Simulated scan of single mutants.
Amino acid sequence: MPYAATFTPEALTRAEVDAKRGPMVLEFGTNWCGWCRGAQPHVQAAFAQAGTDVPHVKVEDGPGRRLGRSYGVRLWPTLVFLRDGAEVDRLVRPQGAAEIAQALGRISDA
Rank of each mutant, 00 (worst) to 15 (best):
V54N: 03
M1W: 12
P55H: 10
P2A: 10
E10Y: 00
R74E: 13
P94L: 11
L75V: 05
C33Y: 02
A11M: 15
A45R: 11
V73W: 07
L79K: 01
D84R: 03
C36S: 06
A15C: 06
G68D: 14
A48K: 07
R14H: 06
Y71G: 05
D53N: 12
V88Q: 14
R93K: 15
D18N: 09
H56E: 10
G72Y: 01
Q44V: 02
D89I: 02
W35N: 15
V54A: 11
G72L: 08
P9C: 04
W76L: 10
A5M: 15
V57Y: 07
F81H: 08
P41S: 03
L82V: 00
R66D: 14
D18Y: 07
A15I: 03
V25S: 10
A86H: 11
R37D: 06
D84I: 01
V88T: 05
C33Q: 00
G72C: 07
A103S: 14
G105S: 05
Q102F: 05
H56R: 15
Y3K: 14
D61V: 08
G68N: 13
Q40S: 15
R21V: 12
A5K: 10
P77T: 01
A48V: 03
G62F: 11
G68K: 14
G29E: 03
L79F: 07
Q102L: 11
L91N: 01
I107R: 08
D89W: 04
P2M: 12
V57S: 05
A39K: 00
A4H: 12
G62M: 13
V59K: 01
L67D: 02
G22N: 07
R69S: 13
L82E: 01
I107V: 10
F28R: 00
T13F: 05
A39W: 02
A45T: 10
P41M: 01
F47K: 06
E99D: 07
A19S: 05
R90L: 14
L82G: 04
R21T: 14
V43I: 11
T8A: 15
R14G: 09
L75C: 12
R65V: 08
S108I: 03
A4D: 13
G85C: 10
A11F: 14
I107G: 08
E27F: 07
A110E: 09
S108R: 08
R65F: 09
